[in-house]
């Protein structure tokens, strides 16, 4: 062991709070990957709550820290934390057919945060209008599926139609359920934003 002798450079309180919140949201999203619910529309494909985590990151942490939280989620998964669906991990997930979804999460969360909060600091999500919340999450979902389908299509050498059906249309109805759940959470008074 060596001893470092440089002076200690303290992390500011605000950065520390945001860093820890982002890290715990990323970990919560990893925990969501273990939780699956029956899909009301298609029992063969269970719903996992991961995309709900992307919505919540954008809504509660805003564009910068929400995007950072998702970047942490992806990086931790790449480095071996079992946070991806089915408790898997590793760089291969990024280079796999579902890698597009994972790579899209930081962008989707940042976009959702930007639509919900605007660019001038954070607002209380409870006061944000319903159309704005729905619009933000719809935009985020479009980003997730655009990247997800593109990578799936490129990666597995299937036809574009096969990719859109196999990697997109099968899952989209479930996203509407997650959006409704996210709105319920924002409106429920249970979670304090700050």
């Amino acid at each position: 062991m060596s001893t470092a002798t440089d002076s200690v450079d303290l992390v500011g309180d605000e950065v520390a709070v945001n860093l820890v919140r982002a890290a715990l949201l990323a970990a919560l999203m990893g925990a969501f990957a273990f939780v699956s619910f029956p899909n009301p529309l298609n029992p063969a494909v269970p719903v996992t709550a991961q995309v709900l985590g992307v919505f919540l990151a954008g809504i509660y942490l805003g564009p910068a820290w929400g995007g950072f939280a998702m970047a942490l989620y992806v990086l931790a998964g790449v480095l071996g934390a079992p946070v991806f669906s089915g408790a898997s991990a590793g760089l291969a997930e990024i280079f796999g057919p579902t890698g597009g979804y994972l790579l899209s999460y930081p962008f989707a969360a940042a976009l959702i945060g930007a639509v919900v909060h605007g660019v001038n600091g954070l607002v209380d999500p409870e006061g944000v209008s319903l159309p704005r919340l729905v619009g933000a999450m719809t935009a985020g979902t479009v980003v997730i599926y655009a990247l997800g389908i593109a990578v799936y299509w490129y990666y597995l050498d299937t036809s574009l139609v096969a990719a859109i059906v196999g990697a997109g249309l099968v899952f989209v109805p479930a996203e509407a359920v997650k959006m409704a759940a996210a709105i319920g959470i924002v409106r429920s008074d249970e979670v304090q934003a700050t």
Binding site: F37, A180, A181, I185, E190
Partner: peptide
Amino acid sequence: TRERLQTVGA
């Protein structure tokens, strides 16, 4: 499912 996602998520 929506209610369960909401409860667990919140």
